[in-house]
Design a protein around this nucleic acid. Structure first.
Ligand SMILES: [Mn+2]
Ligand SMILES: [Mn+2]
Ligand SMILES: [Zn+2]
Ligand SMILES: [Zn+2]
Lengths: 142, 142
DNA sequence: TATTAGATTAGAATTATTCTAATCTATATA
DNA sequence: TATATAGATTAGAATAATTCTAATCTAATA
């Protein structure tokens, strides 16, 4: 975290209290928060913070490659402070997102006709499932 | 297509001209249109068609398992008349989406700690790349 | 301490999607 | 074929996520 801050300063990334709060909230956070989750959290300490700041900061961090934007929840984007390529599983009940650090890249060979149409850059596997909590909820309903 | 219509009638799925137009447009369509793409196309033949009808019909077809909703473009949902599980590659330049029918399921084993937290239901691989057209465009810029 | 490029803010705008409630119609049945 | 009606369509409002704007503020530098 301190190294992070030093690194950002070097890069001329101005460190404002709002940005520090966002960085602190994200640091090591494995909950894959949405912009709103982040906004609400930061707002507790900085009541005048705006969504624009949250989105601007997320965009800046994304551009730097420090966070990932996750496209798995059809409702909204989620953000991941772990930029190391990995995969996700989302609960179809409550949208909770889990990390999957398995490396499947060897197996994900693309067919030739695709490679001749697209230059592949990255890949990301979305697993869909039901979390333990939602499994219980389902049973209760039956 | 005719079988499709027969099948829907059996199921009590009322066949309106708007729905037929949507079905015809989707049938065999590999372009992964968005709701707006579909709306614009249908509107040419049925100028009073509404977005609500497009979304309602897509929802109904999704519920029947006849189409897939694709979460790969962070901007909007795309729809796929091919409900057979398969994967996609999206061009990071123009958002064009291609099909990948490779079967990777054997390789996509989840680690135990995930399986004990989530009951897996499905998976979908998003490949990201640059299509030929956008590759050319990039070169032109250099 | 003064300067200023860049950041923050409130609120408006935009975009995708869903909702509402009035009207219409595909289908079943007499 | 005419009628009844459950279900579909519609225009437009509402909602939700995200982006934009332009006025104000401030972190970093000198
Ligand atoms: Mn993650
Ligand atoms: Mn497809
Ligand atoms: Zn859940
Ligand atoms: Zn392209």
């Amino acid at each position: 975290m301190k190294e992070l801050i030093a690194k950002y300063k070097e890069q001329g990334f101005r460190l404002t209290p709002q940005r520090l709060a966002i960085l602190e909230y994200m640091d090591g956070n494995t909950s894959h928060p949405s912009a709103e989750d982040i906004y609400k959290h930061i707002k507790a300490a900085y009541p005048t913070v705006s969504f624009a700041t949250v989105y601007n900061t997320l965009q800046a961090l994304k551009d730097k490659g420090e966070i990932l934007e996750i496209t798995i929840d059809p409702q909204k984007k989620h953000y991941d402070p772990n930029p190391k390529p990995h995969h996700h599983i989302i609960c179809m009940g409550c949208n909770k997102i889990g990390d999957i650090f398995e490396d499947y890249s060897e197996a994900l060979r693309l067919p030739h006709h695709i490679v001749s149409e697209f230059k592949p850059v990255a890949n990301h596997i979305n697993f869909y499932g039901i979390c333990k909590y939602c499994q219980k909820k389902q049973k209760r309903r039956n």
